[in-house]
Write a protein that binds this DNA or RNA. Structure first.
Lengths: 261, 261
DNA sequence: AACCTAGTTTCAACTATTGAAACAGCAGCG
DNA sequence: CGCTGCTGTTTCAATAGTTGAAACTAGGTT
């Protein structure tokens, strides 16, 4: 389940795709090669295959590769069928209007937090530029609450993949301190980000759980230390938890979703 | 280049992924098998591999597969790096405000039209539910203008893949009539959709071209026969062409783009 | 012209993929 | 209670695809 750990040719090819995506900008063959474990001709064939499959796009003028448009089509289907986003939308609208702070919706992707929506309360923002972003699981509010409700076997696998990079003085930098924090989250039913990822940024987060207690995703309200304190944000917990329950309820009853016009 | 036509294991696995996405709803293994050319165990292993790669998501309760969240992350990168969407955004804003009709931005994905943006002029809509949608190339305004500027070799490959399904009485249903139409488009520099895809829906479309004349994408303004005629819409041609040129110019000068916060 | 560097092709050794067949899990049913 | 039919999973030998060292080509540089 550690993804790259042996899935035959397909897994290797997808690892290359991830690698290209991770650059964040179009890259030349040589750049990929430099970061790759594969020998030159092997990598070359992967890149070729991915390109003529439309998973990578090649710019002949600049001789660069970037993730291809086919992914956008596939993600459209993923978005509608495998994420909470379409279900959560109306609930986020309501929550966002109520709290007048930035609201996030996230799910776990492997060992990372994947943001599905960001509501700035001010203006409704465009999706793709926000949706699809990833962040660390061990030092974000949404990440920690999802981990808190993850079963042990999988949790261990995920923790093993965390970098525990110290973003701020308050970042938890060990598996032990993280585990303690996760226990505390389960005990109170919600979690915080106390400037662990970015200085001055705090948030309160709640998990979205199935009936069986499996985490489907998480919800958070973010603010700054200028305007808010953790104590102050704690008042939002009941509202957030109710929203999370509503979303979970809709998710359980919404298995069939069709394309909208 | 016909995508599924021999790209080894990787190509076959991606074909399975496409297949699952095409269902439009979560599917059971048996449903995929029924539509698949692969024997049962082979398909089974593909599905397994894709699932534990995060390209497919498995719902254990319902025993169904759907496109996985990893695609959302990858599409984020594709969106930012390989599509015109981020570049075109400000230009579409301006155009949309000016014409007060629905504006589309599209690119070609293999032999299909992939819509990247839809501006309803009324309210700014959310992205992912619109972006990623596909449509036929032979009977949409954006599709035809892109085909009109596609080089012969690739054009023939694409035309061979069109279904030429007759959506309306006015749909072009043969390669010959389409080719004539494409010549007409090049002659005048823009194209129409004269109720060829949906009755009552008309549009004017222009290509977004590189300096060398290669089509990067297309732009269209859509209206209904209630409110507009093709003659009336033709007046928008200069404005559309200017917008397309502006986008193409920005695209040529914007090779480096970074993540926004 | 000689010399790099970046990208592409070749080809024999090797390994993964393939799919018929057989197996397991689980309904409903006689 | 065991039979039957259906769906999903595993086995394993034949096969076919993957692999990567090495050699090659194309551009640019000294």
């Amino acid at each position: 389940m550690s993804r790259d750990h042996e899935d035959g040719t397909v897994g290797k090819a997808l690892a290359v795709l991830d690698q290209v995506a991770a650059f964040g900008h179009p890259v030349r063959f040589g750049e990929i090669l430099a970061q790759s474990a594969f020998p030159k001709p092997t990598l070359y064939r992967f890149v070729q295959t991915l390109t003529n499959q439309g998973m990578l796009a090649y710019n002949p003028d600049r001789q660069t590769y970037s993730p291809g448009v086919r992914l956008v089509r596939l993600a459209h289907a993923a978005w509608a069928q495998s994420t909470l986003a379409p279900i959560a939308r109306p609930h986020l609208d309501a929550l966002s209007a109520e709290v007048c702070e930035t609201v996030h919706l996230a799910q776990l992707d492997n060992a990372q937090v994947l943001y599905l929506e960001k509501r700035n309360a001010v203006q409704p923002v465009q999706m793709f530029s926000q949706a699809g972003k990833v962040g660390p699981a061990y030092c974000t509010g949404v990440g920690k609450v999802m981990l808190a409700y993850t079963e042990d076997a999988q949790l261990n696998r995920i923790i093993a993949q965390q970098s525990f990079h110290q973003f701020t003085p308050k970042t938890l930098t060990s598996a032990e301190s993280l585990m303690e924090e996760l226990d505390a989250i389960v005990a109170r039913g919600y979690g915080f980000d106390d400037e662990e990822h970015e200085p001055g940024i705090i948030c309160i987060a709640v998990p979205i759980l199935t009936e069986k207690g499996r985490p489907l995703g998480a919800l958070s309200v973010t603010s700054t230390t200028d305007r808010q304190t953790l104590k102050g944000m704690e008042k939002l917990a009941p509202l957030l938890q109710q929203t999370a329950r509503d979303i979970a309820y809709d998710a359980a009853n919404w298995h069939i979703r069709d394309e909208d016009s």
